[in-house]
């Protein structure tokens, strides 16, 4: 291939790129969640951080080391915060590394919550790392990430 053809091919590939990104399937995403951020855990985190930095600490994600059944895995997030008017946790996001939809849930808290602690049960599609990301009232982001071995993945049928 000569240089001109190669350049042409590169230009065509560039043109095709945005269309391919837009064509990614968005299977009925929850309203309010941008479909484009649903695809990768990195994209999900970036969409939440909006350019801000996240630091490890202040957040503790408690998860069993091994889960036999990925369909329902108990999890507790505890964030170290006085939850006062001036210093509190605004939101907590749970992000999965391997689920088809990385964003598991978002919780919105405030000083009226009193204690930044949440317990729930999640689906996990296989052995992976789960991230809990908290945004504080000063805008800073802190996170914790925990590895878990999942013996039976949640989405075994069809995905």
């Amino acid at each position: 291939m000569n240089a001109r053809r190669r350049l042409l091919a590169a230009l065509l590939a560039l043109l095709a790129l945005p269309r391919r990104v837009l064509a990614q399937p968005s299977v009925n995403p929850a309203p309010g969640i941008d479909a484009r951020m649903l695809n990768t855990p990195q994209g999900t985190l970036q969409a939440i951080l909006k350019g801000a930095e996240m630091r490890r600490g202040r957040v503790r994600l408690e998860l069993a080391q091994v889960a036999d059944d990925g369909h329902s895995v108990p999890l507790i997030v505890r964030v170290d915060s006085p939850m006062s008017q001036t210093d509190h946790v605004r939101r907590i996001d749970l992000v999965s590394e391997k689920n088809p939809v990385p964003l598991i849930a978002t919780y919105f808290l405030g000083p009226q919550t009193g204690r930044a602690e949440i317990e729930s049960r999640v689906r996990l599609n296989g052995t992976q790392r789960v991230t809990a990301l908290a945004q504080f009232s000063d805008g800073s982001f802190w996170f914790d990430a925990t590895d878990i071995v999942v013996n039976e993945a949640a989405c075994i049928d069809g995905s």
């Binding site: 939850m83 939809v101 919780y107 729930s120």
Partner: peptide, 26 residues
């Protein structure tokens, strides 16, 4: 009557969702 806690959940939350959280008693 005042909103104190809100959650947006996705398919990653297990069937029959369970939630535990806190509210400051006023």
């Amino acid at each position: 009557g005042v909103e104190v806690f809100r959650a947006e959940m996705g398919a990653g939350i297990a069937a029959n969702p369970y939630l535990r959280f806190f509210v400051r008693a006023e």
